[in-house]
C-alpha cells in the first residue's frame, strides 16, 4: 500500500496523518479524523454534500484525494462556528428553515460561507447559481436562498459594526 504522511491545517489545528494515496478526502475526514459533517451523497461530484473549504475555495471532498491536501488549510462544517458562536450562515439556515433532513446542510453551509466571501451582496439569481453545485431533496431551495440572503445581511451588519 502506498502510504504517505500528510500535514494540513484542519479547522485551525495542525495535523499530521499517514494516509493511503487513494484515500478520498471525504473518507479521510469522516473515518480517520472522525469529522462526519461532510456527507457522501453521490460519489460522482454532483451533489455537493461533501463540500469543504480548501485554501479558500469550495471543493467536493468525494472527488479529491487526501494526499492532495498536504500543506493546505482545510475547513469543514465543524470548524465554521467560532468558539461556540455560530457563523452567520448557520444562524440564517436555522432562522429561515433552510434545512429539513439536514443531510445536504453541511455542504450547503460550506458553499454559502465561501460564496458570501466572494460575493457579499448577491442577488437571488446569483445565489441560485452559487449553490448550483449542491443538491437538496427536501427544501426546494426557496428557504435556502432566503437564508443565504439573510446571512449576507448579517455579515454586512457585523462588518459595519466592527468597522
Amino acid at each position: 500500500m502506498a502510504k504517505q504522511i500528510v500535514k494540513m491545517n484542519l479547522n485551525g489545528q495542525e495535523i499530521e496523518q499517514l494516509v493511503d494515496s487513494r484515500t478520498l478526502l471525504v473518507h479521510f475526514l469522516r473515518e480517520q479524523m472522525n469529522l462526519t459533517g461532510a456527507h457522501i451523497g453521490c460519489e460522482t461530484s454532483h451533489c455537493g454534500a461533501c463540500t469543504v473549504d480548501i485554501d479558500g475555495e469550495s471543493v467536493k471532498a468525494c472527488t479529491h484525494l487526501a494526499v492532495q491536501c498536504d500543506g493546505c488549510e482545510v475547513k469543514t462544517v465543524e470548524g465554521l462556528a467560532d468558539g461556540g458562536i455560530l457563523h452567520a450562515v448557520q444562524e440564517a439556515f436555522y432562522e429561515e428553515h433552510g434545512l429539513q433532513c439536514g443531510y445536504c446542510t453541511p455542504g450547503m453551509l460550506m458553499t454559502s460561507y465561501r460564496f458570501l466571501q466572494n460575493n457579499p451582496n448577491p442577488t437571488e439569481d446569483e445565489i441560485r447559481v452559487g449553490l448550483s453545485g449542491n443538491l437538496c431533496r427536501c427544501t426546494g431551495y426557496q428557504n435556502i436562498v432566503k437564508a443565504v440572503k439573510s446571512a449576507a445581511v448579517k455579515l454586512q451588519q457585523k462588518e459595519s459594526a466592527t468597522a
Binding site: 462544517v77 436555522y94 439536514g102
Partner: peptide, 21 residues
C-alpha cells in the same frame, strides 16, 4: 416556531447511519 432539531444539523453533528463507527 423554529425547529428543535436544527442545532445539530447546522454544526455537522447529526448522526446518520454512515457516521456510526
Amino acid at each position: 416556531r423554529l425547529r428543535k432539531e436544527d442545532a445539530r444539523f447546522i454544526q455537522g453533528k447529526g448522526q446518520y447511519c454512515d457516521d456510526i463507527k
